[in-house]
Design a binder for these strands. Structure first.
Lengths: 196, 196
DNA sequence: ATACTGACTGAGTGATCAGTCAGTATTTAA
DNA sequence: TTAAATACTGACTGATCACTCAGTCAGTAT
């Protein structure tokens, strides 16, 4: 592994676990065994290092999600939404550090002054909400989901799932124990009353 | 207003708007017009100042919520949950800074090593989720809400509402535009299918 | 052999940080 | 009036921060 790659990986863990301002460059230097000045050689500044990490987080999450959802086949639109919800929770566990980074406040603060950061964040959220929305649209066509504003209901499903995954991040409640109830709640929100 | 009170109010805004590590004590000194050492005289340390702020946030939120919910009368348990959801969104707007503070990562990080901090956070979340749960329980008695695990469904409603209010915090989406769909989603989640 | 390049480093630097402290003002109480 | 307690402050400190820079070194093209 190149030193640049090593720095990226170690910094991802530190920035997510401890936070951006709480991790001095000296910590990254110590943990990687790379000189502090080498980090600046590769990334120019601390903020730039963060952007590089965020870009990789974006690429990884989108690749994982799009990859899984496109190769899978679904019984119905409702099924697709349920699969997306499950996969979101699975991914939040598998890519714990990357999701933790997105659950912190710093990226959104930086996004206010750094357009590249803002673009990365928007890409991630657009990708995720789009997948839920595509499921809703499909479900409305095949009759498994009722007639309701697609984007709005996709956002609500997303905020519900993300909120549950946040419980785990913050050590507040056990997200796994809520899984069945979460899926049941999605079904109830999306159910098509008019058919049958 | 006493200087101690002034420090508390200014620090609340700075810690929520800019973050804990991003606000040096010198900024608080400048904004309040109080000497930096005076802040340490009253609060001993920066961390202690934060705890004092969090305690006030806890008291304010619980007072507002319990006060509003106990004096109000409800048509049904379902109505009570809907009122709680609406009031939560209203309060997140009215007490923007206090809620923003709770949407940051620092309190939860501090809670891992500071038991007083952890206790305050737990008080806040217990109070909020309890109110939703009381509504669900009431609804299950009066038949307006179906038979489902009360605590779990209360947590799901809470995570959904909190997620929506977070959209506003992060400038991602317009929370107000989702209000109607949110209430509708709550009704669908809680609906009693078996009656009538 | 020479010239050049990119990767890398140790030794700094000025700025900024939270916190201290000796001393001064103000209030309170006897 | 005075003594004690409380409120407050400016000047300081040592630690830590992100970042710089002159220079080393291995590889590579000419």
């Amino acid at each position: 592994m190149t030193k640049k790659e090593l720095i990226l990986q170690v910094a991802t863990v530190f920035f997510s676990k401890n936070g951006y301002f709480e991790t001095p460059m000296s910590d990254l230097s110590k943990k990687t065994g790379v000189a502090e000045s080498t980090i600046f050689y590769h990334f120019k500044s601390k903020e730039n290092l963060f952007i590089a990490i965020l870009e990789r987080v974006k690429d990884d999450i989108i690749k994982e999600f799009e990859g899984y959802m496109t190769e899978k086949e679904f019984d119905s639109g409702l099924d697709m939404v349920e699969v997306a919800v499950s996969f979101y929770l699975y991914l939040a566990g598998k890519m714990e550090n990357q999701f933790l980074l997105l659950h912190r406040h710093y990226p959104y603060k930086l996004a206010e002054i750094n357009p590249v950061c803002r673009a990365h964040l928007e890409s991630i959220y657009d990708c995720l909400v789009d997948i839920f929305e595509r499921g809703v649209l499909l479900g409305q066509k095949d009759g498994s989901i009722g007639n309701m504003p697609t984007r709005k209901v996709a956002l609500i499903i997303f905020s519900m799932v993300d909120g549950i995954s946040r419980f785990k991040t913050y050590n507040l409640y056990d997200a796994g124990a809520l899984y069945n109830q979460l899926i049941e709640s999605c079904r109830r929100i999306l159910k098509n009353d008019k058919s049958e």
